[in-house]
């Protein structure tokens, strides 16, 4: 699939607009789920996906298949847009706190709430890594490129993230074992 994605991107770089639609159909879902699991904000995630694809269109010739997969290139764009948006939002909220949107309450099965909450409670640096590594099968090298951190740091943060997840889900694990 990755080679296929890169081939579509090459076609898009050569002016084939249908190729962009194929890329969009295949990659919008994974990018959305990454951003959504990170932010738990549906509208923000939709905006990031759309902005990331707009940036991909604008800078289509900057993608070099020799440097990696299109998927990780797009995730890198999406991650940077998301961080910019979150920082901008924090700044506005500190200036105008009464404009802070109300958090949406979601109803889910109890067990799903637990893992959602556990992932949400992870520090930002660990959350992004566990999401990219576990849900999107990114290699250490790709994660290092997306998050702009050294490869060694990726490895250690994966282990820390798993440890923190264990701590968060600790009670749940003990309960299920005692049953």
């Amino acid at each position: 699939m990755s080679n296929q994605e890169n081939e579509w991107m090459a076609a898009f770089q050569n002016g084939d607009s249908d190729a962009l639609e194929k890329i969009y159909l295949v990659l919008k879902g994974p990018l959305y789920s990454f951003i959504f699991r990170y932010t738990r904000d549906e509208q923000l995630s939709i905006d990031v996906v759309q902005d990331a694809f707009m940036k991909l269109q604008r800078n289509k010739h900057q993608f070099n298949p020799e440097k990696g997969r299109l998927r990780s290139y797009l995730f890198q764009i999406g991650y940077r847009i998301m961080i910019d948006k979150l920082n901008r939002r924090k700044k506005w909220q500190s200036i105008l706190p009464f404009l802070t949107p109300l958090p949406k309450e979601e109803l889910h099965q109890a067990d799903r709430m637990t893992i959602r909450e556990a992932v949400a409670r992870l520090p930002d640096i660990h959350r992004s890594i566990i999401l990219l590594f576990y849900y999107h099968d990114m290699t250490h090298e790709e994660i290092s490129g997306i998050l702009d951190i050294p490869k060694g740091t990726v490895k250690s943060r994966i282990h820390h993230a798993i440890k923190k997840l264990k701590e968060e889900l600790g009670e749940d694990i003990n309960e299920s074992r005692s049953l």
Binding site: L20, E21, Y24, K28, G29, Y32, S33, F36, R37, E42, I46, V49, Q50, F53, M54, Q57, D111, R112, T114, I115, R116, A118, V119, I130, Y134, Y135, I162, L165, K166, L169, D172, I173, S176
Partner: peptide, 22 residues
């Protein structure tokens, strides 16, 4: 950490209809 794996597998995300923006 099979338990953590199984928990992570439970976290599904519904993808909304996102129109491509030009």
């Amino acid at each position: 950490d099979q338990f953590i794996k199984s928990k992570l597998d439970e976290y599904h995300v519904e993808i909304p209809d996102i129109p491509i923006r030009t």
